[in-house]
Write a protein that binds this DNA or RNA. Sequence first.
DNA 1: CTGAAAGCGCTTACAG
DNA 2: CTGAAAGCGCTTACAG
Lengths: 355, 355
Amino acid sequence: MKTSRSRPRIRDVAEAAGVSETTVSHVLNNKGRVDAATRARVAEVAERLGYRPNSNARGLRSGRADTIALLLPVGADLALSHHVLAVDFYLSLTMSCVEAAFEHDQALLQLPPLRKLDDLRRFSIDGGIVVDPVPEDPRVAMFQRLGLPVVTVGRDITHPDDPWWVAADSAASTSAVLDHFVAAGARRVAMLSVDIEWSWFADAELAYVEWTESHGHEPMLVLARPDKLDSSAAEAANRLLDLRPDAVYAPPQWLATGLLRVARERGVRVPDDLLVSVGVDSHLARTSEPPLTAVDLDPARTASEAVDLLVRRIEGRESEGPRLIPVALHPRASTMRADVHVTAGPATRRRPARP
Amino acid sequence: MKTSRSRPRIRDVAEAAGVSETTVSHVLNNKGRVDAATRARVAEVAERLGYRPNSNARGLRSGRADTIALLLPVGADLALSHHVLAVDFYLSLTMSCVEAAFEHDQALLQLPPLRKLDDLRRFSIDGGIVVDPVPEDPRVAMFQRLGLPVVTVGRDITHPDDPWWVAADSAASTSAVLDHFVAAGARRVAMLSVDIEWSWFADAELAYVEWTESHGHEPMLVLARPDKLDSSAAEAANRLLDLRPDAVYAPPQWLATGLLRVARERGVRVPDDLLVSVGVDSHLARTSEPPLTAVDLDPARTASEAVDLLVRRIEGRESEGPRLIPVALHPRASTMRADVHVTAGPATRRRPARP
DNA sequence: CTGAAAGCGCTTACAG
DNA sequence: CTGAAAGCGCTTACAG
């Protein structure tokens, strides 16, 4: 047993295998022409020695960092931002990105809110995943300014031709929820959403309006302001309930819970008088009173497609188009009337409406 | 205006300032003796050129990566783990670590669950923050095996002498909650916790038992199993309610919500018949029915202290002891009886009991 | 198919 | 106080 030295370098592998460092490098990176037998021997030796390339050396020489960045639309102070969608989604997305990156031999760097271009320059990365971009998102712009590949989770609604995004299918989610409402007996179906230009919300609104048109209904749509969350939710929910809907799709989590609270205060019973569904699943949705019917956004799938797409872009390949993630509806008590037979509408796979 | 070249190297700064690369390096790293005027001029030139050292080159040469790792006790599949404490806490902790690291000129790498030592070897990092360690935590062991500095959020309850940890003050939280119960009129105070060997839970249990002893009460303590969350919560909550408590402190979020559900089923009214408090704050705690009195763990403060402590350890300095983070109690409707005047017990700062 | 050599951009003894 | 030179561990033309 040799005394355990510091980690082996490529030279150690070369010596042990009786070849040059060049050949070892070729084997490890699947480059150049190397005799099959040599290749096998080198690979075996590298494995036996537990060789791991030094990523700094590799990065310095090759220009690659083998590291990708993740940019959530959340700062350290979650007070405002994180309840707009749902914490569960962002945490699950994060951990899934970490695992997906790992499988692509990439490390995942979590980035802080970027104030200026120099903030981004500090990091040694090959590209980034920007979550929930707003129109002309400054984070995306910074990546582009530095010539760094970028992929978004959710799309910039002002860039219809960008093929470099991944998103849960908001239009299909909306249809699934609305059809589910109707199957449960609803006749006055409304939407409670937020005035934020994320594609998830924009596409849901569009799908809702189209749906009401094709069903010959008047749209009942109220948008809450994205600031002062508690009061804006209450204000918007009250305004919506004044319209006397019997079913409400509230994509953002904080509006769904706000609506539940306001309904309780006004003596509106859920689900007896009002059906409610939220656009993202969470522990909160599962345990609220009553439990909320919710859309499962499949953050794990979203993450793995996003990482895959980013790696593709980093490698200089073409995108074969944006990737829409199928969703699933989880019906719960908030849309289950005792007297109505309910069918869960399947989440049909559909392209989102493009402006 | 020069055509915008790729980022400037140290040589460009040296030439523009009329000094050697060595001097530039010394200025940038605050090393060696450099004339004050030279120092100022070099710094100014570097600033003007927008110079940023190449972290791969720096890392290769110096052995430092200027990158720290964060290891949450959560995998991509949040199904089990993440509700044991609360998603809000982990996400906030993560984003706060990112910002704290940024302020220390470190990048923050999120790590996947580590299956084997080689998984860890793949990353180029200077150290790591392991969140919620279990006894002889394998993640901590891997860091130690590679000689990498590590700091934990929460402590390993079997290593009382380790000074390298940061944790919210669980004992003080528990006292604050229990005293708050008594002030609200409770006389049969119970605890509902989980059989996981995290210090947050262990210290709360210990504090509870000590508190009952010093108040001359019989302890009523039920521990849920950490698997099959929904059924274990229901089973444990039912068992506890059979003991007829009039107040329950449930540190883990999923048990607090499980208790609320079981109480509802059994016709036990909260807060009229039963006071309930949870050990971690979240959107769910704020919006549940009724809203739950909760302990604010101050994840932002915890994160910044953890990063600070890790940087200290990386620099080879001594720890001046573990860091206990003060907590705050947020009283809400779940402990507010209409007929009792309630005072929020201040979270006193206390060292946790050490086994 | 294989290897010698250059060089990525820094930092760090070391010499002056 | 300042700088020339070596070298961190790789990858990549290039030559054979």
